[in-house]
Amino acid sequence: MSLVAATRSEYTKQFTTAGWWVLAIVLVAYVAFTAGVLALVFGGVASGRLGGATGPAMSAEGVPGLVYSSASAVGYVFPLLVGTLMVTTEFRHKTLTPTFLATPRRGVILGGKFVVGVLVGLLYGILGSAAAIGAGAGVLSIFGIDTALGSADTWELVGRMLLAFALWALVGIGVGTVVRNQVAAIVIVLAVTLFIEPIVRTIGGVVEGFDDVVKWFPSAASDALVGQTIFSSVSTTGASTLDWWVGGLVLLGYAVVLVVVGMLTTWRRDID
């Protein structure tokens, strides 16, 4: 089986089941809600129309990018989950058995998953960006803040978010090749993305010196790639971030390392 055939087979597996669009609906709802709330808070503070707000005034110019970037800041878990499920689901249901029997070249099969993973990641990136911009711009316009939809910087931000979503899908595939058990893989992904990394990054934002370590974390590298981060708004150390292209390479590096480890270990084993 060639890479084209493997990609076609993987495409059929992904888009003939309900999993991808169920997660897509949740992604859109979650990102839209988050962007709307951030626009309400930051837009209200920047415009001075949020009653009871205290602290330094926020520049209205930086609010749109911060709100729109929530698509990747909180939505990256979805392409990560999809990439993980692309592999672990096949282990769970043993659909890899006939595939491996028909195509002993396991690297080709994994290559097909990479191609489809990038496509799904880009699709989720488009949906997430549209949700964040739609909800965020709508709320910001209520406060009379320029939504910056005509700015080249905004669309450059969107382009980087699409790249981040695609890379997160590859990281998920890497996770799936290392952790074959689907339940364990999902628990690890959710624990790391929703609890461990946010807590550690928050600590890094207030503890000097520790921020130099935290900036190499996957989610921090993703934020650096996008160029905006919610965590920077709560940082008190003035922590530096990676250059956007370095952030992209770091995120890609995580995917490559996980895939290599998986190929050298679990991906070579027989299906239980």
Rank of each mutant, 00 (worst) to 15 (best):
residue 162 L to H: 06
residue 150 G to F: 10
residue 168 W to H: 12
residue 138 G to H: 05
residue 188 I to R: 00
residue 189 V to I: 12
residue 140 L to R: 08
residue 160 R to I: 11
residue 176 G to H: 02
residue 199 I to C: 02
residue 190 L to E: 06
residue 145 I to D: 00
residue 173 I to D: 03
residue 165 F to A: 15
residue 144 G to K: 07
residue 156 E to L: 14
residue 175 V to P: 08
residue 153 D to R: 13
residue 145 I to P: 08
residue 154 T to Q: 07
residue 193 T to A: 13
residue 178 V to I: 09
residue 197 E to W: 14
residue 176 G to D: 13
residue 183 V to I: 15
residue 200 V to P: 04
residue 148 A to I: 05
residue 148 A to Y: 02
residue 156 E to T: 15
residue 154 T to D: 07
residue 145 I to N: 03
residue 204 G to L: 06
residue 201 R to G: 06
residue 161 M to T: 14
residue 137 A to N: 05
residue 160 R to Q: 10
residue 154 T to S: 13
residue 140 L to F: 10
residue 193 T to N: 13
residue 158 V to T: 07
residue 184 A to S: 13
residue 197 E to C: 09
residue 194 L to Q: 14
residue 184 A to W: 04
residue 171 V to S: 07
residue 189 V to D: 02
residue 183 V to C: 06
residue 172 G to W: 00
residue 148 A to F: 00
residue 191 A to W: 00
residue 153 D to C: 02
residue 161 M to P: 09
residue 139 V to M: 08
residue 193 T to E: 01
residue 135 A to N: 09
residue 149 L to G: 07
residue 144 G to L: 08
residue 198 P to I: 13
residue 167 L to M: 06
residue 136 G to Y: 01
residue 176 G to N: 08
residue 154 T to V: 06
residue 174 G to C: 07
residue 140 L to C: 09
residue 175 V to W: 12
residue 145 I to R: 05
residue 203 I to M: 15
residue 171 V to P: 03
residue 143 F to I: 10
residue 192 V to G: 04
residue 143 F to E: 02
residue 138 G to N: 07
residue 188 I to K: 00
residue 198 P to E: 09
residue 157 L to A: 08
residue 160 R to L: 13
residue 194 L to C: 11
residue 149 L to H: 03
residue 169 A to V: 03
residue 137 A to C: 11
residue 147 T to M: 11
residue 159 G to N: 03
residue 185 A to Y: 08
residue 181 N to E: 13
residue 148 A to R: 15
residue 191 A to Q: 04
residue 140 L to D: 11
residue 190 L to H: 07
residue 174 G to I: 00
residue 145 I to H: 08
residue 164 A to K: 08
residue 199 I to M: 13
residue 163 L to A: 14
residue 195 F to W: 04
residue 138 G to I: 02
residue 198 P to C: 12
residue 157 L to P: 13
residue 140 L to I: 10
residue 180 R to M: 05
residue 194 L to A: 14
residue 179 V to T: 07
residue 137 A to Q: 03
residue 174 G to E: 03
residue 172 G to Y: 00
residue 167 L to Y: 01
residue 151 S to L: 01
residue 202 T to N: 12
residue 160 R to V: 10
residue 147 T to S: 15
residue 195 F to L: 15
residue 155 W to D: 09
residue 160 R to F: 12
residue 149 L to E: 05
residue 136 G to K: 01
residue 197 E to Y: 14
residue 134 G to M: 03
residue 137 A to E: 01
residue 174 G to N: 08
residue 176 G to W: 05
residue 134 G to F: 04
